[in-house]
Amino acid sequence: MGAELERLIAALARLPGLGPRSARRAALALVEKRETLLEPLVAALEAAAATIRPCSVCGNLDSVDPCSICTDATREKRVLCVVETVADLWALERARAHRGLYHVLGGTLSALAGRGPDELRIDPLVKRVASGEVSEVILATSATVDGQATAHLVADRLSAFPVTLTRLAYGLPIGGELGSLDDGTLAAALRARRPL
């Protein structure tokens, strides 16, 4: 195997979800189907590298700044959903459950990873809320210890502003059976119960 092919496999193996074996299979498919797979992929990667940037307002990734979500006139501009990552934003967009704006923090507080408040996009969030244009902030961080700590920090930083702070509900997944759920999920579902 040539050095260039080894380099391709090593680069593919660094992608999330691809181990060495999957990277070898992907590299082989790319090289064997050069015109239909490899060349279009190279063109797409070059275009992405040249044009895709974080939005200066919300942190989403797009080829325009501000991004297409921030400039969408049909969005509810007064409702801001705070997420940890762009992947979380994309998941909410796929679900078509939120028609407001977003703010990407860029991660969560994490003592293990050495990530404190200064590494997150909390100050830009405070500035957006301080502008008076936001009436509700939805804290859509994960149900992990780090996600909870991050939500508490954000809530504390926004407590001086006249905005409604809400949190995503936790609990039973659609189609979930009680017997197969963990204790924490069941406890959260009981705490988040609401009248019918």
Rank of each mutant, 00 (worst) to 15 (best):
L8S: 13
I9L: 10
L12S: 12
P16A: 13
P16Y: 10
P16T: 06
L18V: 05
L18K: 09
G19A: 07
P20V: 04
R21L: 13
A23L: 08
R25V: 11
A27R: 04
L28E: 10
A29K: 10
L30F: 03
V31Y: 00
T36M: 00
L41C: 07
L41M: 13
A44E: 12
E46D: 07
A47F: 01
A49T: 04
V57W: 00
G59W: 11
G59Y: 11
N60F: 05
N60Q: 02
S63V: 07
V64R: 15
D65V: 00
P66C: 04
C67Q: 06
S68I: 02
T71C: 05
A73Q: 04
E76Y: 00
E76R: 12
K77Q: 14
R78W: 02
V79Y: 13
V79F: 11
V82R: 10
T85M: 14
V86D: 04
L89T: 03
L89M: 13
L92S: 10
L92D: 05
R94S: 12
A95S: 15
Y102A: 07
G106N: 11
S110K: 08
R121I: 02
I122M: 08
P124W: 06
V126K: 12
K127P: 01
K127C: 06
R128N: 01
A130M: 04
E133D: 14
E133W: 01
V137K: 00
L139S: 02
S142Y: 05
A143T: 09
T144E: 01
Q148H: 08
T150V: 10
H152I: 06
A155E: 09
D156Y: 15
L158S: 02
A160Y: 01
A160I: 06
A160N: 12
L168N: 05
L168Y: 07
L172W: 06
G176D: 02
E177H: 13
L178E: 08
S180E: 13
D182V: 07
D183E: 15
G184P: 00
T185Y: 12
A192L: 06
A192I: 00
P195D: 15
